[in-house]
Design a protein around this nucleic acid. Structure first.
Length: 714
RNA sequence: GGGCCCGUAGCUCAGUGGUUAGAGCAGGGGACUCAUAAUCCCUUGGUCGUGUGUUCGAAUCACACCGGGCCUACCA
């Protein structure tokens, strides 16, 4: 290890695929990585945390097609969602790129030409199933048919779930494309391969002796891949493919797994460009006066061989720095089982954020992760018990039971005799730091909680509440006791800061200011003012967990309902009895409102007041309302903003509101919406209405009586 | 079928050759009342999966078996 403050540490998490939202399983890795990076920064090292969206490949292409938009539109939308989720969980990337970037294209090109120059690229024809209707080659999972061994129907192209037989898609009986239903044909196409066998010795040595990977993994690789000649790696896909076209092989695109890890470097380059640094500082192999940077990859066990064989092979061939360490973790289970949509345990990041504090999950993961590849189980009862006992009962309690006595006086001017408690916990810092360094956060958390236990015992023994009642004679002693307790509290907050950044900030606001350095755990504070105590964390209660699971289940059901590949028929118009207006369909509510509508449609990402004011909402009066006979859902309305300002608006409320009942009533209109040419005329605005899960219908909004057309909503 | 990991108190785990095996949570009893029914003290609870070895000494090492998990499969 380099001198303590001389380390340059580049850290990555695996790139999330732009085909889906972030869930709690992903977050095991991002939390683990973020904790590691925050720890390194707190220790004063130069650490950067880089990640990116993984955007290319067939799955994205197919999904974009299905949604009737471009791949880039899909990818851009998913990026926003990913970033909002990460932000919610306090995952602090130094840069978050995309594999669909200019930097990535250039770097892929660079690495590719170096592979070419070393003669590692070979070309060969591959016979693959082709969907003549969709016009694409089919990956194994896009083909279904009957198992050639046992005849089971509806099996995927690689293996049979019924009898376990393995085969190739071409072996399937009565194969069909899951994209179009067409019968695939076998076609031959040229593919480009990276031949890895020339790097066999290098990989055998590197996996075994570089220290980058756990010996157990090295053994697995040795047995599984390195015990025989390495197979060539197929890195190209014929058009059409969403990705980068290979410059010296027109019509061929780099396979998504080729350009994905290069995204680590591309993100670094973008980060460097923004700060005037050079890429070689991080991915170069070092110089006499500049040793190479440390590179730490955090990944899940499912992508082990990409990161321990292909990736180092690419880096070696390209003359770039090799990973210092590949950290492999297991999967997440919930209540002891795989996350399951039908059980309601498929928990999306944003669903969690709507119900619970992200810090609690960060702590729970930290308390569970010990650096190994075992799966992590999120048992919700255990989660609640652990978070409540440790964070609320022990740590937060320390401040909440003593801070009030120091609001007036601040901390004692000299650190009082505490029987060696602070010094002991300060000495524990070395062990805690070693555990963090090792990604054994479970050990770190255990050690920290022991300090919290000792601190609470101290408070009990000193009985500051009695000192408080004893009056001025005991004031100095009271201040001393509380000063010790708050110092021990802040010391713990420093140790927990990598895991609980928001909590650490609040602790700093209470006493001592922002926590900037690990060293702050080594010296007690004296004389500092103490702010009024604010609640730092709420206990997890059963209803919170029940609501979370209910929301997850509702989400899964909503998604399942939206999934059928055949176009969903337009909803049939409801019975005419619904058309009398909003009052008829809304029974008075007595008990608590259902959680269903919100659960089914989680809140959108946060926006600013500026975002909101871009939308000009006005009160308007409906002047005319008429049926559009050919339209299934639309009514044609003329609305007035007062005076002679009127607009023609098509509103999707047919069947829920009789036209004649609408004339004269006040509604809310998006007044500055861009005009939209529709089949039946131009719509010059949008009438605001509510709809969602839990009840059918579309509900118009009405202002309180007295509002005038043209008034703005704000 | 093969490989790897795990099996310690009701639960989650620490302890990996050396005094009567530990912690947190849960259970029981008590104290306190400052604190988010939080905290503190005492306490119940384990033939350390089973068996056989190695050793002066085994939860810890070896072998076999039983049970669980992960990975991978007519190739390690």
């Amino acid at each position: 290890m380099a001198a303590p403050h001389d380390r340059r540490i580049l850290v990555t998490s695996a790139l999330p695929y732009a085909n889906g939202h972030i869930h709690l399983g992903h977050l095991v890795e991002y939390v683990q990585t973020d904790v590691f990076v925050r720890f390194q920064k707190l220790r004063g090292h130069r650490a950067i945390y880089l990640c990116a969206d993984d955007t290319h490949g067939t799955a994205i292409m197919i999904r974009a097609r299905g949604e009737g938009r471009s791949e880039r539109a899909l990818v851009a939308a998913m990026r926003e969602a990913h970033l909002a989720d990460f932000d919610g969980f306090q995952i602090a990337f130094d840069h978050y790129g995309s594999t669909d970037s200019d930097a990535n294209r250039r770097l892929c090109d660079m690495i590719w030409s170096r592979l070419r120059a070393r003669g590692l690229v070979v070309s060969r024809d591959v016979r693959q199933l082709y969907d003549p209707e969709a016009g694409v080659f089919l990956a194994d999972r896009f083909v279904k048919g009957c198992c050639p061994k046992c005849g089971a129907s509806d099996q995927y192209g690689d293996s049979c779930e019924a009898c376990g037989a393995a085969y190739t898609p071409a072996d399937l009986v009565e194969p069909r494309s899951t994209l179009s239903g067409a019968r695939p044909e076998v076609r031959s196409a040229e593919h480009l391969f990276v031949t890895l066998e020339p790097l066999h010795d290098f990989l055998a040595t590197w996996t075994r002796s570089s220290g980058a990977i756990d010996p157990r993994i090295a053994n697995y690789l040795a047995g599984h891949f390195l015990g025989e000649p390495l197979r060539d790696w197929d890195v190209s896909r014929p058009a059409p493919y969403f990705g980068f076209e290979i410059p010296d092989a027109p019509g061929h695109f780099w396979y998504v797994w080729f350009d994905a890890p290069v995204g680590y470097i591309a993100a670094t380059e973008e980060w460097c460009a923004a700060r005037g640094e050079t890429l070689a500082t991080w991915w170069g192999r070092g110089a006499p006066n500049e040793p190479p940077a440390e590179i730490h990859h955090f990944i899940g066990k499912d992508i082990t061989y990409f990161h321990t064989l292909f990736w180092p092979a690419m880096l070696e061939a390209a003359g770039l720095a090799l990973p210092t360490r590949v950290r492999i973790h297991g999967f997440l289970t919930v209540n002891g089982q795989k996350m399951s949509k039908s059980r309601g345990t498929f928990l999306l990041a944003r669903t969690y954020l709507e119900h619970l504090d992200p810090g609690m999950l960060r702590y729970f993961y930290a308390a569970k992760l010990s650096g190994g590849i075992d799966d992590v189980d999120l048992d919700l009862d255990e989660f609640a018990a652990k978070v409540n006992a440790d964070l609320v009962g022990k740590v937060v309690n320390l401040a909440s039971r003593t801070a009030r006595w120091l609001e007036a006086t601040g901390l004692s001017a000299a650190y009082p005799d505490d029987g060696g408690l602070f010094a002991r916990a300060a000495a524990d810092g070395a062990e805690i730091a070693a555990a963090y360094e090792d990604c054994d956060t479970a050990r770190a958390m255990r050690t920290i909680m022991l300090a919290a236990d000792r601190a609470n015992a101290y408070v009990d023994a000193e009985q500051p509440w009695k000192l408080a009642k004893a009056g001025p004679a005991s004031a100095a002693r009271l201040q001393d006791v509380a000063s010790v307790a708050l110092n021990l509290f802040r010391q713990i907050a420093v140790y927990l800061a990598p895991v609980l950044p928001a909590f650490a900030a609040q602790a700093g606001a209470l006493v001592g200011g922002p926590i900037r350095s690990w060293d702050e755990s080594q010296r007690p504070l004296t004389g500092s003012p103490v702010a009024p105590f604010q609640p730092l964390m709420k206990r997890v209660e059963k209803p919170h967990l029940d609501a979370l699971l209910a929301a997850a289940r509702a989400e899964a059901e909503r998604e399942a309902a939206a999934r059928p590949p055949t176009p969903v028929p337009a909803p049939a118009p409801p019975p005419a009895s619904h058309s009398g207006g909003p009052t008829m369909t809304t029974p008075p509510t007595t008990g608590p409102d259902s959680a269903e509508p919100l659960a089914a449609e989680p809140l959108a990402p946060e926006c600013t007041i500026d975002d909101f004011t871009k939308v000009d909402l006005r009160v308007a009066r409906i002047v005319t309302a008429e049926e559009v006979p050919e339209a299934k859902k639309l009514l044609k309305l003329t609305v007035s903003f007062g005076g002679d300002a009127t607009r023609t608006v098509f509103a999707g409320i047919k069947g829920f509101h009789a036209p004649e009942s609408l004339v004269g009533r006040l509604v809310v209109v998006v007044a500055n919406l861009a005009p939209r040419q529709m089949k039946f005329g131009t719509s010059e605005g949008m009438v605001v209405a509510a709809s969602g899960a839990g009840a059918p219908g579309v509900y118009l909004l009405s202002p309180d009586s007295g509002a005038l057309p043209g008034m703005r909503l704000r």
